[in-house]
Design a protein around this nucleic acid. Structure first.
Lengths: 205, 205
DNA sequence: TTGCTTACATACACATTTGTATGTATATTA
DNA sequence: TAATATACATACAAATGTGTATGTAAGCAA
């Protein structure tokens, strides 16, 4: 067939990734075949094998496309010294992520795939470790914010920042899971930001 | 071969379920074949097909074996009017579940399968709805406990029981996920009950 | 004790996937 | 402009898994 220019090739690469995301979402990662992905991208398996070694590589490509930018963003909102107080910073950071999920379809779908359309065995087991490491980093950032809040005497009672940070992280982790599973939005999605606010307010003096 | 008595047959049924749990855990649900399960149970696929229609039915058998009793237990500890105050009741209920996870291998493995070794598509999609419904029920029970706590003026600040209950549920949901993913126990398992206590203490006057 | 049913084991036929090998037309480059 | 590498499509071989059909020996009821 027609040999493509480099830009054309990069475009088909992206189309394969997009197709894979859709197929993974609909059929789960395991049940998705390269033929499914190829035909959804309107190419042949030959094209897929040209761009990716196998299904696992496509999976990682999807993941990196969405998660790496997200982590950077969370880092930013939590670290940058804005004019908000630390508690509001945490609140905004979490709300920002929820907003991204609402607005960014690719991110929403990727989250759903990672959470409930993938089995973390063999080649995928390493991804779990990466996820845990990200969690540690985020928790640390939250902890630093809580320490600043403590220094500014914004916190209620005598809670230590570490415990508060872990509690917040677990809360948010649970919220993300429920947000994803709440397909019709009737249980969690509609009130996600409210839940975040009341979670933070619980710590405010 | 040898025809078995009814008790023998029931025993092989359980051995198939046990084998399936082990195989699902090791290979993920999708990659587990009935041959894997059969040979691990030291029977042939014929035996498996005799007892179960297909892999999905085995999956449900595993799930029901563990989850139904658990939900009952949580209901009990949250509903029964003991001599503890409502907040301690909630705390104990959550800690009990964590203790069960620590002590009950089958339950631990089943949780792990449901959370990170299963893709919720097609036949498995309905399970997600069941999980969400259970979550609703548990949240309601927690809310009732918080309402009693409020009536007894045990709560700090002016938080409404509903928001507290959802917050607690999301926290615990996140904790369970992390508990399961924390294989070596270095991140969450060792401090799970402490996290629960400080979560509850955050609400105590 | 006979006959039917149970609790499996064995065998078969079919459909799927996968990786690779090979073909090919066109961009790119020297 | 000739040679080469690129970006795929096509074809092939092998393995794997599934459901079902059939076989069979022993339990159980009459």
């Amino acid at each position: 067939m027609v040999r493509k220019t480099k830009e054309d090739a990069e475009l088909t690469r992206r189309r394969i990734i997009d197709a894979a995301r859709a197929v993974f979402l609909a059929r789960g990662v395991s049940r998705s075949t390269l033929e499914h992905i190829a035909s959804h991208a309107e190419v042949t398996r030959g094209a897929v094998y040209w761009h990716f070694k196998n299904k696992t590589e496509i999976f990682h490509a999807i993941r990196e496309q969405v998660f790496l930018p997200l982590i950077d963003r969370m880092d930013d909102t939590l670290t940058i010294q804005g004019n908000e107080d630390p508690l509001t910073q945490i609140e905004n950071s979490l709300c920002d992520t929820i907003n991204e999920l609402n607005e960014n379809i690719e991110m929403r779908q990727t989250y759903e795939i990672m959470m409930i359309k993938c089995e973390y065995v063999d080649e995928f087991a390493t991804v779990l470790q990466q996820i845990l490491n990200n969690c540690s980093n985020i928790t640390e950032k939250i902890q630093l914010a809580y320490e600043r809040a403590e220094a500014q005497q914004l916190l209620i009672g005598k809670n230590n920042p570490r415990a508060l940070a872990v509690d917040t992280h677990l809360f948010f982790s649970g919220l993300l899971h429920m947000w994803v599973k709440d397909f019709d939005g009737s249980r969690f999605r509609f009130q996600a930001t409210d839940l975040i606010k009341s979670h933070i307010n619980l710590r405010r003096k």
